[in-house]
Write a protein that binds this DNA or RNA. Structure first.
Lengths: 191, 191
DNA sequence: GCATGTGAATAGGTTCACAGCC
DNA sequence: GGCTGTGAACCTATTCACATGC
């Protein structure tokens, strides 16, 4: 089974040249005249993305966002293993989510170390995010997925990905507003 | 109260020159020798982002992601008004979330038209996302925030923002993996 | 004097177009 | 013949550096 850069481009809303350039950056694993072997491509990308191993993740914050994430269907399938959940709320501590029992937030550092967690998901209020991030990094975490609507400060070399609902909506309102303000289809100039 | 491009840059993890260039793209509203008036800057950005009006939003899917979004604290504050919630699950239809009653998904088109909704949030399974998107656009929606882990196809001119937990985690694993593979601090060459 | 706003210089990313290989 | 891989051309974005105006 094989797929061409052209077909990949259509699926990803991009161009064939772009697909080829991007892939070539990591080596050349297509077959000229044929395309890319789907299985080989999948396996190569798995390795490039670091998905050829299991990443132990700790979820901080057992609120609604936390539970939505925990239930996310592909989470485990894609190589991420939620090894612990912590929260500050005494009401929630001890509660069982699937296999996992919600633990007190004070345990964060020891859990990170014991379970060798490499990633944390911050599903906490904005006011708590910075402190939790610092504690996590000090305990040895290598990357942070931040759902709190604040820009957290971490040492260089620790990647942070931010997900912020309001900013996504703002991106939409901006584009819609701009479309209204701008000439619809600036005609190709001349001739 | 005034703030300099330098200060803004530090907060946004960027550079002063970048901040100035970006803002200058929309006009020049700083004071030389002083910086930017915080209030004026806020107001200008509100207008640029289209936040000087209320955007009626319909939430499609009353599962965990949907409820997390609905509870999101800044949602309303920032000018987004969730005017309706729909779901296909008969168990959920009729349930009350705050002021709103969950409505049957068949009503989607009529709700969009009646309530003049401009944005929809797709918090539905991947298998349903494309159809819901098409129905929404046909009914007049102007932008889509998609939480389903599929790339949806929409007519040109309809902005779509995607939020995909697994892809965010993959971005982290990629960066961590690459840091391990790459020279830590390629020394400045020469001398 | 100080920080903006902006051309000029630079770097980075995308598209073109075609040689190379299946 | 068909599609990849890749230099070269092109285009866009970032950085520099300084004239401008408070």
């Amino acid at each position: 089974m094989t797929i061409s850069s052209e077909q990949l481009a259509r699926r990803g809303h991009t161009t064939a040249a772009q697909v080829r350039k991007d892939l070539s950056h990591f080596g050349s694993f297509g077959k000229r005249g044929l395309g890319y072997g789907v299985d080989e491509l999948r396996d190569r990308l798995r390795i490039i993305l670091g998905l050829d191993r299991v990443w132990p993740v700790i979820l901080v914050g057992a609120g609604r966002i936390g539970s939505a994430l925990f239930e996310y269907p592909d989470f485990k399938k894609r190589g991420y293993d939620c090894v612990a959940i912590v929260d500050t709320d005494p009401e929630k501590i001890g509660e069982k989510w699937g296999e996992r029992v919600i633990q007190p937030a004070e345990e964060l550092e020891s859990l990170i170390k014991e379970l060798r967690a490499t990633l944390v998901i911050l599903a906490v209020p904005a006011s708590a995010a910075q402190l939790v991030a610092e504690r996590s990094v000090n305990a040895g975490v290598r990357g942070i997925l931040n759902f709190a609507p604040v820009q957290i400060q971490v040492p260089e070399g620790i990647p942070v990905e931010n997900v912020n609902l309001v900013m996504e909506l703002e991106a939409l309102s901006f584009q819609i507003t701009r479309a209204l303000t701008t000439v619809k289809h600036r005609p190709p100039e001349g001739r």
